[in-house]
Design a binder for these strands. Sequence first.
DNA 1: GTGAAAGCGCTAACAC
DNA 2: GTGTTAGCGCTTTCAC
Lengths: 344, 344
Amino acid sequence: MATIKDVASAAGVSVATVSRVLNNTAPVNEETRQKIQQVMEELAYQPSMIARGMRKQQSKVIAIMVPSYENPYHIKLFKYIENYAKEKGYRLILVGMDEGNNSEHESIMDLMTRNVDGIILCTYRGNKYNIKNILQLSKRLPIIFMDNFEFDEAISSVVIDGYKGMTEVTKHLIKLGHKAIAYIDGSSGYKVANERRKGYEDCLAKYNIPVSQEYIYYADYEIDAGYEACKYFMEECETKPTAILAANDIMAIGAIGYLGEKGYRIPQDVAVAGFDDIYLSKIIVPNLTTYRQPLNTIAEQVVKMLIDKINSPNSEEKQVVIDGELIVRGSTDKRVKDKMFPIN
Amino acid sequence: MATIKDVASAAGVSVATVSRVLNNTAPVNEETRQKIQQVMEELAYQPSMIARGMRKQQSKVIAIMVPSYENPYHIKLFKYIENYAKEKGYRLILVGMDEGNNSEHESIMDLMTRNVDGIILCTYRGNKYNIKNILQLSKRLPIIFMDNFEFDEAISSVVIDGYKGMTEVTKHLIKLGHKAIAYIDGSSGYKVANERRKGYEDCLAKYNIPVSQEYIYYADYEIDAGYEACKYFMEECETKPTAILAANDIMAIGAIGYLGEKGYRIPQDVAVAGFDDIYLSKIIVPNLTTYRQPLNTIAEQVVKMLIDKINSPNSEEKQVVIDGELIVRGSTDKRVKDKMFPIN
DNA sequence: GTGAAAGCGCTAACAC
DNA sequence: GTGTTAGCGCTTTCAC
């Protein structure tokens, strides 16, 4: 790779001048500029982002940390965020937290040694001690949380309104006549999961349906857990539920897998609903009723907030809550026909 | 972030000595070493990878370029490769080529400005002109191709034996009694796609089944195309096929989506098979017959080859071909029962 | 309008 | 066994 020095000497000017035309940072004689540009062409010169970053102490890259690569929800989110970030001149790097034993804290430190300008933290699953640590880090490195876990201190976050969303889905099930509605919880103990479950519980209560602990299975957002949860409901519960609601789509799909294997009809025997609206919801048969997260809006918002924070580190922290939308499909309402195409 | 200079002055030594204990590059007095390590602890010092990379002209990061983020196949591959790379001290960055109009060439240039040490090119879809360009780049930056497109020159690549694989799947269908077997092609024109299709064609020929152009639909590896292809076969072909074979799983799943919508029974009315064995194959009902790519082996191989190439840039290029395995499931053989769990 | 030079954080000669 | 120094490729004062 040609360096700025190569360009300078080939053009018979100093590196400073080359830098000036590169960055439009000071007026340069038109002729000289032409000459320099021409040389840059010839040498196929590309400025080293590394050197530039080192000098300016910023890299124009941001990282997004997700719990795992397996859930299409996060991959899709990554894609949207990458698009918005690109528009603003930032590259994105994806960090999955499922493999190895790296804690969020370690990963963030690692990212800092690579000069990332900011981080989008998509799920925090560490312990209380680590939370303190991360909050500490967030004083030095802009971080936007997408997990609204309970804090003493204010942090910047953008989340969907899980309480409201789950209330809507539950209501939908109740309106359909269900009373025995089981719930597959997410990673219990964190606010996102708690909020969603509370939406379910409060909605039941509102319609005078008792909330039974037997009908709540504490899982981890993964597909296999959805399968296991459903197995538990159908094989262990005194009265089998007529509807199963999961804290995310992927677990709902696990549940559908179990029901399919055992020959239950969906939704006639058991209705199933999820949360997220990943594309699998339209692939699975029957199509999955769910609560759509407007990923595009979320992505736009989160990128905007992060970049604002990068540009003015001392601006105050703010919380943004975004609304989703109930999507009714065949897994709860048999009148709705499956319609896969187009998927996107 | 504390710098090496901070550590040095806090420990009362020179930066060189600190660097020595950091890299174990020369003997250091035990007491001094202790002192330095203690100071590093206190300051939570982490060496800047950027500065180190700048100095050593290498970043310890490799990039993997994939056609899109939508196909779980590539995401899974990314995950495996990331694991092996991590073992060797490399970080991975993921670059999807589907959005925006960046060519492979531009993306590679961009990556070079960020000092990536090597690239895994998972699919090449540019034109002939660009191929020359990329081959040129591969002289300066180690690249391993996972697409075995036709070249004059030798390049390093690791690919699965698509010809053999597709032959096996086709044979399986024929053994089941099918004669009207339609084929959904991948991105036609590239060797991977051509090889797979040829496997299908040659196998038909071997069993004296005429190869009909009507039964070949040229698609693009995406799910929607699989749906469209199937629609074409079932609505336009004079004699409807009794089996549909797709160049990858995601298209097979698109086809299943169409068949499901229209009420065809699988495999009784139409059998469907794919290629890859992504996890969706076990989620879809009925489970998909496919040809399993041993991603773990592939990942290990590709990382090894890339790192070898990084370490000795002038070693000769080599091609590695890996075998897969036919996986028979309910989408072709109704005796095989669906079994989703565990998914991984 | 342009050049010389310092410096971002690190490693590696080279000297002692 | 340790310190001094040059330099990776760039940006940015500060002179002129």
